[in-house]
Amino acid sequence: MAKTNSVFKKVVMAVSGIIMLLFLIAHMIGNLHVFQGAESFNDYSEWLRSFGEPALPPRTLLTVIEIVLVVSVLAHMWAAIALWRQAKRARPERYVTKKSVVQTYASRTMRWGGVIIGLFIVYHLLDLTFGAANPAGTDATPYDRLVASFQNPIATTVYVVALVLLGMHLRHGIWSATQTLGQSNRRRERTVNAFAVAFATLLIAGYLVVPAAVVLGLVD
């Protein structure tokens, strides 16, 4: 039953999206440690790895977060691909002329935007988590990797473009999740949309201050 239920797919999409959104908030706040200097940033990174030691084995917190995120990403992708294919099947013959009336740019770019964000995440992990794609290499501290990456104009441009796409993804995603989970109504519609725009803008601004600070030389 669940396999054919299109609303169930949307619920999977909404719930996994909300989980990833919560992570994005925590990640953005964590990034801001960079303004407290190299030591604070590297200590924060170390704290994430040693959280709960010695009562818990090393990397317990991170491993739990990683598992939850990988499951969320896969669930989100499964729902998106299933709905994408369903939509393709539902309209095999396209219109010669089609005009959008109210569709936002954000909602139009959900699918390809999502694919681009997915590819960016792979690069982002190779760059800053594993260091394989980082100019400072795998042995550098997290802080040095961050600075080295954002001193490269191409890496910075990729980051900014991906984050702006992510912001638009969230702008439609927050509204859509509210609808899918049945929490919207005519009275709330404007508020939900205004919140989605404000939240996405603030969150992405929180991310972009870091490369901006590196480019402006405030962090080096």
């Binding site: 939509a87 909602s107 859509s176 049945g182 919207s184």
Partner: peptide, 25 residues
């Protein structure tokens, strides 16, 4: 074989009776 709803809003904006997105929620 209809597609799934992704809450775009084109339906409501094209509806001659102005049925709102609230109904979908």
């Amino acid at each position: 074989g209809f597609g799934g709803c992704t809450n775009i809003g084109e339906c409501s904006a094209s509806c001659p009776k102005g049925i709102s997105m609230e109904t979908i929620s």
